[in-house]
Each structure stands twice: as structure tokens, then as C-alpha cells.
Design a protein around this nucleic acid. Structure first.
Length: 477
DNA sequence: CAACAAAGCGCG
DNA sequence: AAAGCGCGCTTTGTTG
């Protein structure tokens, strides 16, 4: 072991990380997560019943009758192809977007904007089918003696992230409350004296990007706890004042959370990954109605924007010159400000990084992984960030598992989701586990990798003893 | 029957 | 100049 820390990782360092990471993840696989099989059976039956009921309900709808008339015995409500034909050929609705192959697009974004009761019900049925067909029965299929041993693979993803399969541990529903509840109640600790504990790195990809570009405005956001980039961008996108983002009472907190969520996931992250205003603006605009975004006084943000002189989305077409009273025009300005004035050092890094790749045909991650081959601009910019963010998690997981062994603790790591660790933790070891993990994830890792130049934070969520993953609540760390 | 592509949807 | 990154699973529809 070197006494002096190297500031550049090598390919050997990268190899070592994967080697030890693989061993640690194989232990995680073999540990497995405990399944409430009784609940699972009940949930499958209940969901099947709901699907049946809701399917019967919409059979009286005019649209279904038209569908039946056109496709007869071949009628299949799971067929996007048929749905597109019925809606846009028979019913006379105009198709807003087409797929690669020129067929009408019938995804959630398109369907929910149509505002047709039949289609709304259809979407609800599709969600239930996804829950049952992919998640509930997927878990059932792979559970052995009450334990689920999902696979975690390294060296498969191009970014040197992990992936998971049979079943995929990393895409269980959480964003939709009802669906999250239905699925996550399956996962329980393996005894009544244990908790399910999930530890998340906060905003690790944003930090990871900053370790490369070192943009002073971004570093300021990451160092100053009173500042919040996602909130600020949400305010700018929806033209809201600071007062609008201050809750007037306890019930008002969710309204602000939803607005911030849209700033984060409909503008900031898409922009970081290389998206642009023409695609961000419609998503932000549609979110207002879909998530019922409102001002402090309960006014729809559509009406709020109107009071600011923006009365429509505008035409989603790059050849159209956007008028100044459109939302598209506004978001185009917000984007310009975002890259030209807020984060211009970040923007310059992207240019330089991409140009260096064009010259060398390869690049190296901070963790020592060398990536070569033909890549698009956005891939060249995103891979090094996505990679190091996960490598922080992998290093931490490996280290925590070693310490659990060293101290002969009975708590187990049972899963991992890119930037979070899922543990099955003995009640008597909980405080100890949280302390160990926090130290590894926020202190020790900075000693191991000196290029981590921002303060790291983790969030801990813990289920009540013996209770499911769904019932987790935040705890102070 | 199997193999494959496309579309869709779940997560970070 | 180009125009969201990564993954796995299920179903439909085509091809041989």
C-alpha cells in the first residue's frame, strides 16, 4: 500500500475495484432479500382481480366497440399497433408523434395528453398489468425458500456501472405511490428483530460531474447547504418567486416538492445529459396539468404563466420561429442562461472533453477505467460521470461489507441500486451500522480518492422492525 | 416452433 | 453541430 496517495487512478486500480466489487456483490447475491410470500400471493390475486374488473368496465365504451368492430376476434388491448389505428384512423384524433418506423406513438406521454376517459382507464389497466406481469410474478418466479437472489453484474454496462437481472433488483416501482406500495411490501427483513435499511448517496452524479468540470457556480451549490439548484431552476422555468416556493402551511409542502421535482427531472437532468429546450419545454408544460402544479393561492401554473405573458406552449418544431408569448420561447431563454451564464465552465468542460476524445479516440474516468470506441457526443460526456458515481457506491459497499465481517456483525447487505445500498440490519446493530456506513461513504472514501472535492452526504431510510421496505422512513444520521 | 426487432415502461 | 445517459423485462408482430 502506498503511503503517499496518488492523485490519478490507473487501469490496475480500476481492475482492483471490479475484482473486489465482484466478490462483494456475489455475497450480496448469495445473501438474498427476504420475501413476504404470503403477501405476494395475495397481491397477485388482488391485482389480477382489479385487471379483470377494470377491463370489463371499459368494454361498454364507444371506443372499445369501434375497436371490436375493426379487429373482431383479433382484438387485443395490449397491442399498441391496434390502439394507434383505432384512435387515429377510426376515432379521428390527430396523432401528435410517430415512432421511428412511422407508426403512431402510443406511450404514456401521448395518451395522457389526449384526455379521453377510455384511454385513461386503459393506462390504469396497463400499469396494473406491468405490476403483476413484470414485478409480482417476476419476484415469485425467482423466490426460493422465501429468499430472492437477484444477480448483480459488473463489466457489462458500457459505463462500468452494474446491472441486475433475474429479476432486476434495480427497477422496482417507487415514483408512483400506489405501485410502489404494491411491490415494495414484498420485501421484508429476515426476522422480526431486523430492519430494511436503505442508504442513498445524495446527488452523486451532480457531484461526480463537478469533480471533472469544477464549475465554480456548481461548486457553490454543492458546498452551500442553503442553496438548491433544482429549486432554483424550477422557479426559473415556471417563473415563480421565492415566496411561491415557501410553504404557507404543512399541507403546502407537497405542492413545492412537485414543482421542484419537475425542475430537477424535466429540466436540470435532461440538460445535463444533453437534452435541449425543444424537448424539455413540452415535458415541463405537460407536467403542469399531469401533476396539477399550482401557485400558493391554488392557481394552476398555466394561469400563472399567462399572467406573466405566456399563454401557450407554441409549436414543437425546430423550423418554427417561436413567438415571445410561448413557453417554448421562454424555456429556450432559460436554457441559454443555464449554459451561457450559470454553468459556463461546465459547458466549456463538455467542449474540451469531447474534443480530447475526438483527438485521442478514448478517455479515462477518474476511477481509472479507459473507454474507447465510437461514441456520440452525449455518450462521451455522460459515461465518465455515470461511471464514477457508481464506483463510489461500489467502493463503499465493498468496504462496509468488510467491516461488517471484521466486527462479526450479523447484519447483511442484500441489494444495491446504483447509488444506494439496501441492508437487512439487526435492530441491535442499527446505530453501529449507520455510523460505520456514514463514515465509509462520506469520510473514508475521500481519503481513498483525493479527486472527490465536494462534501458528500447520505440519506438513511429505515423500516420499523420486522416491517417491509415500503414502510421505510427517513432517519437522522 | 424459435429468433429477432420494435415498442413500451420500470428504475437510477 | 446536434439534439437524454445507462440498464432489464414483457408483449406484439414478423420472419423463417
Amino acid at each position: 500500500m502506498n503511503t503517499k496517495m496518488k492523485n490519478k487512478a490507473t487501469t490496475l486500480d480500476a481492475y482492483q475495484l471490479l475484482h473486489e466489487g465482484s466478490l462483494a456483490l456475489s455475497t450480496v447475491e448469495s445473501n438474498g432479500i427476504c420475501i413476504d410470500t404470503e403477501y405476494l400471493q395475495k397481491a397477485i390475486k388482488q391485482t389480477a382481480r382489479k385487471i379483470k374488473e377494470q377491463t370489463e368496465d371499459i368494454k361498454n365504451d364507444e371506443i372499445f366497440k369501434t375497436w371490436k368492430k375493426r379487429f373482431g376476434t383479433k382484438t387485443n388491448m395490449d397491442s399498441s399497433d391496434q390502439l394507434g389505428k383505432v384512435l387515429f384512423e377510426n376515432m379521428g384524433y390527430t396523432c401528435p408523434v410517430y415512432t421511428q418506423t412511422g407508426k403512431p406513438k402510443t406511450d404514456i406521454a401521448v395518451l395522457s395528453e389526449l384526455n379521453i376517459p377510455f384511454v385513461k382507464s386503459l393506462l390504469s389497466i396497463k400499469q396494473l398489468k406491468k405490476a403483476k406481469g413484470t414485478y409480482l410474478s417476476g419476484i415469485e418466479k425467482e423466490t426460493i425458500d422465501g429468499l430472492l437472489h437477484a444477480f448483480f453484474d459488473l463489466g457489462l454496462a458500457v459505463t462500468y456501472r452494474s446491472s441486475s437481472s433475474k429479476p432486476n433488483f434495480q427497477n422496482w416501482p417507487i415514483r408512483n405511490y400506489e405501485m410502489g406500495k404494491l411491490i415494495r411490501q414484498c420485501f421484508i427483513p429476515r426476522s422480526s428483530k431486523r430492519h430494511i435499511v436503505e442508504l442513498d448517496y445524495g446527488g452523486i452524479e451532480v457531484h461526480g460531474a463537478a469533480w471533472y468540470h469544477k464549475d465554480p457556480m456548481m461548486l457553490d451549490y454543492l458546498h452551500d447547504k442553503t442553496k438548491d439548484m433544482h429549486r432554483d431552476m424550477a422557479m426559473q422555468c415556471y417563473m415563480l418567486s421565492k415566496k411561491e416556493m415557501t410553504p404557507k402551511n404543512e399541507d403546502d409542502a407537497q405542492r413545492i416538492k412537485d414543482i421542484r421535482y419537475c425542475g430537477k427531472n424535466r429540466f436540470v437532468f435532461p440538460e445535463f445529459y444533453g437534452d435541449w429546450w425543444l424537448s424539455c419545454a413540452p415535458a415541463l408544460w405537460n407536467s403542469i396539468s399531469q401533476m396539477k402544479l399550482k401557485t400558493r393561492e391554488g392557481l394552476s401554473l398555466r394561469k400563472h404563466l399567462k399572467s406573466k405573458g405566456i399563454n401557450r406552449l407554441g409549436i414543437v418544431n425546430i423550423d418554427v420561429i417561436q413567438e415571445s408569448n410561448t413557453f417554448l420561447y421562454h424555456i429556450k431563454q432559460v436554457e441559454r442562461d443555464f449554459w451561457n451564464s450559470r454553468f459556463k465552465v461546465y459547458r466549456q468542460w463538455k467542449e474540451d472533453w469531447y474534443n480530447a476524445y475526438r483527438k485521442n479516440g478514448k478517455f479515462m474516468m477518474l476511477t481509472g477505467f479507459e473507454i474507447s470506441g465510437l461514441m456520440k457526443r452525449n455518450e462521451v460526456i455522460n459515461y465518465p460521470v455515470q461511471g464514477v458515481a457508481f464506483h463510489c457506491l461500489l467502493w463503499s459497499l465493498t468496504r462496509i461489507q468488510k467491516l461488517l465481517n471484521k466486527y462479526k456483525m450479523k447484519s447483511l447487505i442484500v441489494g444495491q441500486i446504483h447509488d444506494s445500498i439496501v441492508g437487512d440490519i439487526l435492530k441491535s446493530e442499527l446505530q453501529n451500522y449507520l455510523e460505520i456506513a456514514n463514515k465509509v461513504m462520506t469520510v473514508d472514501i475521500k481519503k481513498h480518492w483525493s479527486w472527490i472535492t465536494t462534501p458528500l452526504e447520505i440519506e438513511a431510510e429505515v423500516s420499523p422492525v420486522g416491517k417491509s421496505w415500503f414502510e421505510k422512513t427517513k432517519v437522522k444520521i
